[in-house]
């Protein structure tokens, strides 16, 4: 629980002076190496599952930047996830972009919408802001779903990019691993940079942050755009992974998935998105496989987490590590 011990676990503590959360390269490297080995040796199906988890880990981590650190709640984050995939698809099908350019366009489209919607949403605070994010999401979904001449409607867009870029699953898995690792490290840098300090300050006490000269709106807007951008990276990867895009990707279910992952992972902890994605996807797959009423199972687990262990899996991991790990 000591801040500044440099691992990928973090506490809910307020920013402190001399708050140097440097990246623990040893941990990152070992995770990456382990994951690479897993990707190479596993059968394709496990590789697919790993790819999915990695993509959602990035999406949830991007959402977590808002939820845990900037003091905002987004009820429509699937928009930025899905628009990444739509940005990729539409730039290729409608603007004849080459695939490489389309891949860059995806996250930028997300960031652009993050900027536009963000400008609206940061005008408000707390639950009103959250409601506005929901409204923005509903409008976006309606447009994507109904304007089928352009977006393909509910049968979506496919065929614009070869599934997994035509790579072998493990090769694509390695690509995703690289992108997701770099992106999550960048998010880490954001959270623990001077900018991140400001974001957290605003998130925890806007009035005091304002007294220090940090306007809430502009800081939250920056966080919103960053979060939208990285959600878009995840969405673009997801679009390439499946080789298609559907309105579901911007829909409420993906939003709820993200929220539940973060809460399950443990609010106010950087690792929430990563832990949450792993456990949620595992649960989701297992429960649905063995039990027709899988939503009931997930609902009950969420209730238990909220009531019994609000710090989620991250809190659990912290407790275990502090018990068995070296005492300091």
């Amino acid at each position: 629980m000591t801040p500044g011990d440099g691992t990928l676990r973090d506490s809910a503590s307020a920013p402190k002076r001399g708050d140097t959360y440097s990246i623990n390269w040893r941990l990152v490297l070992s995770v990456v190496v382990l994951q690479s080995i897993l990707l190479v040796v596993s059968p394709p199906l496990v590789v697919f599952a790993l790819i999915e988890v990695m993509i959602f880990a990035l999406y949830a981590s991007a959402l977590n930047l808002l939820l845990s650190f900037s003091g905002m709640v987004s009820f429509g984050h699937a928009v930025y996830f899905g628009l990444g995939a739509y940005g990729l698809a539409l730039s290729i099908t409608h603007f004849d972009f080459p695939i490489a350019l389309g891949i860059i366009a995806g996250p930028l489209v997300s960031a652009f919408f993050g900027l536009v919607y963000g400008i609206l949403c940061v005008q408000l605070t707390a639950i009103y802001a959250a409601m506005l994010t929901l409204a923005c999401a509903e409008v976006t979904f309606a447009v994507v779903f109904q304007w089928f001449d352009v977006t393909g409607g509910d049968s979506g867009i496919s065929g614009h990019v070869p599934t997994m870029l035509g790579l072998e699953p493990y090769q694509f898995g390695l690509v995703v691993l690289c992108v997701v690792t770099v992106a999550i490290l960048m998010l880490w840098r954001v959270v623990y940079s001077p900018l991140g300090l400001t974001i957290r300050a605003v998130g925890q006490n806007p009035a005091r942050a304002a007294a220090l000269g940090h306007g809430r709106k502009s800081v939250q807007l920056i966080a919103f755009v960053i979060s939208a951008f990285f959600s878009g990276v995840a969405g673009t990867l997801f679009g390439i992974f499946h080789g298609n895009v559907f309105p579901d990707y911007v829909g409420i279910l993906f939003t709820v998935d993200g929220l539940l992952m973060v809460v399950l992972g443990g609010l106010y902890s950087f690792g929430a998105g990563i832990y949450g994605a792993i456990v949620y996807k595992l649960l989701d797959n297992l429960a649905a496989h063995y039990f027709e009423y899988w939503q009931l199972v997930i609902g009950c687990i969420i209730v238990i987490v909220v009531l019994v262990s609000p710090s989620g899996i991250a809190g659990l991991v912290r407790r275990i590590v502090s018990r068995i790990g070296p005492r300091r």
């Binding site: 929220l259 809460v263 939503q295």
Partner: peptide, 28 residues
Amino acid sequence: RRVYHAEELMQLVLTLAAVLIIRDATKF
């Protein structure tokens, strides 16, 4: 009642979980 003093997000997520549970119970 147990989350009135928790963060807003926890309350929201708790009601979201209730949505999932009630829906599946209704299906059942």
